[in-house]
Write a protein that binds this DNA or RNA. Sequence first.
DNA 1: GTTCTAGAAC
DNA 2: GTTCTAGAAC
Length: 199
Amino acid sequence: MATSTPTKRAAPSSNSQRPAKKGHWSQGLLESMNDPNLIVESDERIVIIKDKYPKARYHFLAIPKINVPNLKALKREQSELLRYMQDQCHLLASKYPHVEFRYGYHAIPSMSQLHLHMISQDFDSPCLKTKRHWNSFNTKYFLDSADVIRCLEERGMVVTMTPIAGEKLLDLPLKCHKCIYSPQNMPKLKQHLYKHSNN
DNA sequence: GTTCTAGAAC
DNA sequence: GTTCTAGAAC
């Protein structure tokens, strides 16, 4: 009995040994930084790319070209770099005069290399699927760029939170960012968001 | 970070 | 029975 092969996850094409760290998913930004299809703006200091899985109609990432793994790695003198990233995002936003954006960092990012999110507040996207997605942009897990810069300048380092505290924020009940509605699940939230949209 | 899907929730 | 989410992925 049980000799047939039940439908299971397809085995990886190459097995036994995990890929080298270079190809690990957490290093994906370093590849996206050099992907001409994703690059929107680029100069000697930073690159701005389209998020590969946008969580709103407009979702960009500003990334420094020098290696900065995360917020913790930042030194006081690099607040100027953060300002530059923010300024360049504001400049890009001026191309979309009727679009509302927020600018900020995830407290505990999954991907290596510092990246500033610039995301439109419609949150209208098929890639927005989970409570984690929502809460990562709509709780204190999303650290406002201006606050991060101020912290770095005043305290000489960026104070974030523990991974445990981050997980708690990601697990909070869903709540609309524009009104008091607390939907029971993601499909209801996504349907509700159309009420705040202009078209 | 995403994909996939078992089993919870409805 | 269908919808939805949470957790594994070697």
